[in-house]
Amino acid sequence: MKTLEPTTDIVDIMDVIEQLCGIQVDNRKLYLLEHRFGELMREASYSSYAELARCARDDRGLQQQIVERITTRETLFFRDGSPFQALQHKLLPEIIDARSTTRFPRRLRLWSAACSSGQEPYSLAIMIRELLPDVDRWDIQILASDISSTAIAQAKQGVYSEHEISRGLSPAQLHRYFRKEGSQWRVQDKLRSMIRFEERNFLQPFNTVGLFDIVFCRNLAIYFSDCNRRDLFSRIADQLVDDGLLFIGAQEYHADMSERFSMEQHCRATVYRPKKRIPQNRGLG
């Protein structure tokens, strides 16, 4: 495979990518540009990456094509199973107990922040339905968001191939929550009704999404610069309730989490809780 050199030509499109979606392409992964943009360059007859970058700055359609091609959508149901086990066997029961004396004892809010083609939010919905026998009496909403409009469209549709459906689901879960349609499987409405899908750029403010008990933001910030990563986690902390939970990817570390979180270990999973803010002393008078 040909390795690209970080010339000025390449740097131009790298800058555009980071400005559009926060993804930082380092020198070790420059081959991704050739692999993912080669066809686009040929179809539109761009003479260089600099020309592609220049055209993209004023063309929203081209910007979306760039985002679609650079984002990664590799996922599976119940990916890295320990977070789901920690939630099901310890953390979610604790949250339910804590909510029992509040004004909204049967309300839960979850956010699958980088949901890709939908396997993660559907996995969360399955876990909740298997934990709560009276789940239909609860007010449960799962926000599933992604920057990729293609990924969101597939997630909304909830239709998966035999290969996709075989990754992470037990036979019992498959037949309980999906129905066969030819060579594919479709999510049942009892799962889909728990989830709201939304296209969202993670560089933009989160002040319209509400507060959450649980946020999954896995394998997204690993592609961000240090500055964008710290900013992302700080903004997520603002969207968590005081005893909320954040799960990040296995390759993302506490050092990247800013000073807003404390780390805990449960059922072989690492989870982060927002630290309570200390009110600032505004002085007298």
Rank of each mutant, 00 (worst) to 15 (best):
M14Y: 09
D15V: 15
V16N: 05
L20D: 00
L20F: 08
D26A: 10
N27M: 04
N27K: 08
R28E: 12
K29R: 06
Y31V: 04
Y31R: 02
L32A: 00
R36C: 12
G38C: 02
E39N: 15
L40A: 10
M41P: 01
R42L: 14
E43W: 09
S45K: 14
Y46P: 05
Y46I: 09
Y46L: 00
Y46M: 11
S47G: 11
S47T: 12
S48N: 04
Y49R: 07
L52D: 01
A53Y: 00
A53L: 00
A53H: 03
R54V: 14
R54G: 10
D59N: 01
D59H: 07
R60H: 10
L62Q: 01
L62G: 05
Q63D: 03
Q65D: 07
E68P: 00
R69E: 07
T71H: 11
T71N: 07
T72F: 06
R73A: 14
E74Y: 12
E74A: 02
E74T: 09
T75K: 02
L76E: 03
F77G: 05
F77W: 04
R79W: 02
R79A: 00
R79Y: 09
D80L: 00
G81W: 13
G81Y: 13
S82T: 13
P83D: 08
F84H: 03
